Simulated scan of single mutants.
Amino acid sequence: MKKYLSALVAGLLFMLLSLPSVHAAEKQEPKKEQAKQTVKIPNSVLNITKENTYPNPTNDMPTLQPSEFTEELINSSKVKIENPDLIRMLNETSVNSTPFAIGYRAIIYLGQWPLNYESAETSPNWEYQKINTNYFDNRGGKANYQIHYVQEAQKVVKGGLTAKVQDADDVQKMMLLKASEKTGLPLAFQTIIGAGTKKDQIYNIPPKRLGYLYGYAPAVNEKGKVTYGEVYLMLKGNKKMIIVKNVTSQGIGAWIPVQDHVSFGFVASERPR
């Protein structure tokens, strides 16, 4: 429903305003800035982007740049507005000022929105989900046996919110942006490791031992608070402002996989595991 609000707002403004006119604001190209990696990746975690037989799409989510009109509206709000979809909608609608709008007043309801997400904790789990096991029995051998990682079956690793919330897609976008900014890791709510993916790193299984090479998909656990509110566009004379009413906050968490990375654990055992 929200994707139609932009057209609805433009139509309402056109009918209500005889002096100010409504027009489409020119969209600004978002700035694509590479987030600096702030989380140290352990030596046991390897990047498989080149080796992955399933080409995951690049999850590039640059911050949407508000237009001048949208920036003015956002700054007029007493509640922080960071929702990319709400900013995009405001970018698509603008109102021209006119010196003859004295005494004019209009209030337009834009709907209830998740307005911002405040991150409280971001922590990686390098063994979020086991995706593969390579095994060899060298109990009858007289020398070391070398094995390396080979993905035996395609594996889909999904993250998601830890609780049901309103407008979950909007909340996920804001949490993904914050977690990516804080960690600098390539995060996505879904990543796929293709069958036959290989890595050349060698692991030695001594004689009289069974060797197990475990592969895990890492993920980031993101926790924080999302703020909701009812958004109104107020036009009063030449002034334009955003008013937010009935503000509520809710704690929320999410698991977000690290794209195209595998964490390895190697065990050489005398007995089957």
Rank of each mutant, 00 (worst) to 15 (best):
52 N>G: 05
138 N>Q: 12
251 G>M: 12
69 F>R: 03
74 I>P: 02
85 D>T: 12
256 I>D: 15
123 S>V: 09
217 A>Q: 11
184 G>S: 08
1 M>T: 11
75 N>P: 01
4 Y>M: 09
51 E>C: 04
144 N>S: 09
169 D>T: 02
227 T>C: 00
47 N>P: 02
70 T>H: 00
92 E>M: 14
236 K>Y: 13
153 A>G: 05
172 Q>D: 06
217 A>G: 05
7 A>N: 14
207 P>K: 13
105 R>V: 01
71 E>Q: 13
170 D>F: 07
181 E>I: 10
34 Q>K: 11
259 Q>W: 06
95 V>L: 04
175 M>I: 15
161 L>H: 01
27 K>C: 06
226 V>S: 08
57 P>H: 11
64 L>I: 11
52 N>P: 00
16 L>G: 12
14 F>W: 15
142 K>F: 09
65 Q>K: 12
206 P>F: 14
59 N>D: 13
85 D>F: 15
212 Y>H: 09
210 L>I: 05
77 S>W: 09
224 G>T: 03
121 E>V: 01
90 L>A: 13
124 P>A: 09
55 P>W: 15
205 I>P: 05
101 A>K: 03
55 P>V: 15
2 K>C: 13
17 L>Y: 14
168 A>N: 06
102 I>A: 01
146 Q>T: 14
76 S>V: 06
91 N>I: 08
70 T>Q: 06
216 Y>C: 03
14 F>R: 15
268 A>D: 12
249 S>E: 15
238 N>I: 07
166 Q>F: 03
137 D>H: 06
95 V>G: 03
219 A>F: 06
30 P>A: 07
115 L>Y: 02
139 R>H: 10
81 I>C: 10
174 M>W: 05
164 K>W: 02
82 E>L: 12
35 A>H: 08
95 V>K: 02
187 L>V: 05
171 V>L: 00
241 M>D: 07
118 E>S: 11
176 L>S: 01
232 Y>F: 10
166 Q>R: 06
144 N>C: 01
234 M>Y: 00
177 L>S: 00
238 N>A: 08
264 F>C: 12
97 S>P: 04
81 I>G: 04
104 Y>E: 07
144 N>L: 07
214 Y>F: 10
